[in-house]
Computed example of a mutant assay.
Amino acid sequence: MTKPSAGSGGGEHSPEHRPDEGSHADSDQADGQRFVLHKPGGEPVRTGRNLPVAIASGVVLGALVFFSIFPWPQLFTIITSIAVLLGLRELSRAFGRKDVRLALVPLAVGGVAMQPAAYFGGTAVLLGVTALTAVVALSWRLRGGADGFAADSAANMFTLMYLPFLLATWQLLVSHPGDGQFWLVTFIVVTISSDIGGYFAGILLGSHKMAPVISPNKTWEGFGGSVLACAIAGALCVTLMLDGHWWVGVVLGLAVVAAATVGDLIESLLKRDLGIKDMGRFMPGHGGIMDRMDSLLIAGPVVWVVLSLLL
């Protein structure tokens, strides 16, 4: 449930200088927080993060996810429920910078309930719990009066759909009859391949900016690395684990590249609007939990739709 952290086609997490980041941004500039790679011509490239620590954190989190779905995939509902609570904490603090208030109690209770609802009840039960949570969250905000109601309500609905609902699509993957655990593994492997391919291609070859206004560190070379890595990973996962045709894996990989890139850009723009570099500092070398799930959140439902239609 994680990925490398650096600017490329697959992820934008290099330090960006903004006047309100203070010592947090300065600390990331220290040599002790950097890891140096070299371009083919020998030019050193600073990654912006302590890469060995980031990789170690990713391995630990990946192992946690793996051992939560084998042999009891029901345990994965606990993992995504914890992610809901941690993510709500980060989003609440981030929105608080703009004096926007989240209805944390109904979002937390409903968001956690949505995880087992999706696993045990499928899409119909998930939609029912989501709708009920939306009604309660909007009603909860009524007692705050008219001042800021529109902004708070919009933030609550955004948070509901962006975090617990999209996380619940991971439960739809793992609960698929027969081979759901391998659906989830395929989703994680292909999405992380997008980030890894984009990371190294962007760091070593990147020169043409993709979206400089939104995410100045993303490059078209990094995007190309993401496409190649995703297509290969998708073809291998679908043929080896899901007994599908290789072309299904390629289609899946291309869909994941698009979703992961959009997910990165969405969170980059959100953080830029809120005036923060990271959503939190939960994991060493990785930032907050929301920083690690940006591409995964958007890719989850895309993988579920593609596999449901083509397998």
Rank of each mutant, 00 (worst) to 15 (best):
I203H: 08
V190I: 12
S193H: 00
S193N: 02
S193M: 09
D195A: 10
V189Q: 03
S207H: 13
N217M: 13
V227D: 07
F200K: 01
I196N: 03
G222K: 03
A201Y: 10
W220R: 01
Y199M: 00
T239P: 09
K218T: 10
N217Q: 13
N217F: 15
I192V: 11
I192W: 12
L205C: 10
S207T: 15
P212W: 14
S207K: 00
N217R: 14
S207I: 04
F187Q: 03
I188Y: 05
D195E: 07
G202A: 08
A231T: 05
V238P: 15
A231R: 01
I192R: 03
A233W: 01
V213D: 07
W220V: 15
D195G: 11
M241A: 03
I214N: 08
V190A: 01
L236Q: 01
I232M: 07
I232F: 09
V185F: 05
V238K: 01
E221K: 06
H208N: 11
V227P: 14
S226H: 00
A211Y: 06
T239K: 06
L228A: 04
G222V: 14
P212M: 10
I188A: 07
K218W: 12
K218Y: 13
I188N: 06
M210L: 07
C230P: 15
T239E: 00
G224Y: 14
G224H: 08
